[in-house]
Computed example of a mutant assay.
Amino acid sequence: MSYDKIIESARNDASLTLNHTCIRIKDPKISVPFYTEKLGMKLLKRKDIPDLKFSLYFLSYPRDDLPLDPEGNVIPFGVPGILELTHNWGTETDPNYKLSNGNEEPHRGYGHICITTKDIDAMCAKLEDVNVNFKKRLVDGRQKDIAFILDPDNYWIELCAYQQDQRDKNPNDYRLNHTMIRIKDPAKTLPFYENVLGIKVIEKSVHENGKFTLYFLGYGLEEGESKRSTQGMLEITHNWGTESDPDFHYHNGNDKPQGYGHICIASDDPEKICKEIEEKYGDSITWAPKFNHGKMKNLAFIKDPDNYSIEIVPRGIVL
């Protein structure tokens, strides 16, 4: 499968944003306070879908650039750095219900979200004080500049520091910086994200000792801008050798056991982009569903080469 045909409108669409990351949660009465009270996020909007028996919770760090609808309500699809928590009703009372965090065999795939801060030592100390569960402290392992914590559903959250940029006008210290997924073959996956969806590779990091390569991708990053101080990026991890194993595949988070859901790309004209993708790539693209064809209208879901889902929505959509 080749993705060498470039969608020019996607590359030239300045409105394109890697808007949010969706993960499923067991109990919103536990998870939402964890992200708001312990990690300092703000609940922007809750949306209940009674017909399908689930609820969505949109969160972000405090910011001044959130768009509003005519009634003054927040539109969570207009900016990057949003976290979407999905709660399927009834899971909170099921003692046997457990989500996959994407980091345990045989269901590895999704890795983590990453929160960056100006002072990583102060952040870790603050989280220790409120009894957050650490997977890796700064002093552990070879990498002394990053830590990992666990949320109530055992999802990993990376913590690391960024250097202050004089151009930075975001008053908040914390940023929802990136989402990490593992991929089988960068020769297939990178052209998909770059050419089909127009996401630019900003940095490549090769790790000889660990035999893996990291790729950081994003929209609209200015030259010289620190990737750690921005919000809404995608980190792709390639563990060497997986591309040559015909039977190897990662768990996409939507097959059972479920956990990770998707990343979401927002645009001023997603219908146009989806139409152009269909025209250029035809049957090589998997839709689930195509734009405006599902139970929830005005959006589409597309699958990448590793079968991860990407939602495509209008930036100004009002829930």
Rank of each mutant, 00 (worst) to 15 (best):
N209M: 15
D27A: 01
E276V: 06
S2Q: 14
D268N: 08
K169D: 12
N252E: 04
P70D: 05
M1C: 12
H112R: 03
H107P: 08
F148R: 09
G78Q: 07
Y174S: 11
V132K: 04
Y3H: 13
L99Q: 07
H238G: 01
E84S: 05
G259R: 00
K295I: 01
S267K: 01
N298M: 12
T21W: 06
L217D: 05
Y3C: 11
G218I: 06
D185G: 15
G141M: 01
Q163A: 11
E71G: 06
F148C: 09
K272S: 13
D94F: 00
T17L: 12
R175P: 05
L56E: 05
D153R: 01
D51C: 02
A125W: 10
P50F: 02
E278P: 05
E194T: 15
L176A: 08
K280A: 09
Y215F: 11
Q166I: 08
L197E: 04
F148Y: 10
L44R: 06
F34N: 04
K256M: 15
V201W: 05
F77H: 12
E243T: 07
W89N: 01
T91C: 02
K303L: 12
I157R: 08
M296C: 10
N19M: 08
Y155M: 08
V206A: 15
V130G: 03
Y155L: 07
Y193K: 07
N298I: 10
K47R: 10
K118H: 14
P62G: 02
R175Q: 11
K26P: 00
I149H: 05
T117S: 06
Y281D: 10
G294C: 03
S2I: 14
P314E: 07
E208M: 08
H238K: 07
F34Q: 03
S100K: 01
S229T: 12
S267R: 03
V79P: 03
K42L: 09
I312K: 01
G220F: 15
K184A: 12
D65M: 11
F134S: 04
D51L: 06
E225C: 12
F212V: 09
S226E: 14
R11Q: 07
R24S: 00
N170G: 15
E223S: 13
P28N: 13
P186W: 11
G316K: 06
R46A: 03
I202S: 10
A266Y: 02
Y97C: 00
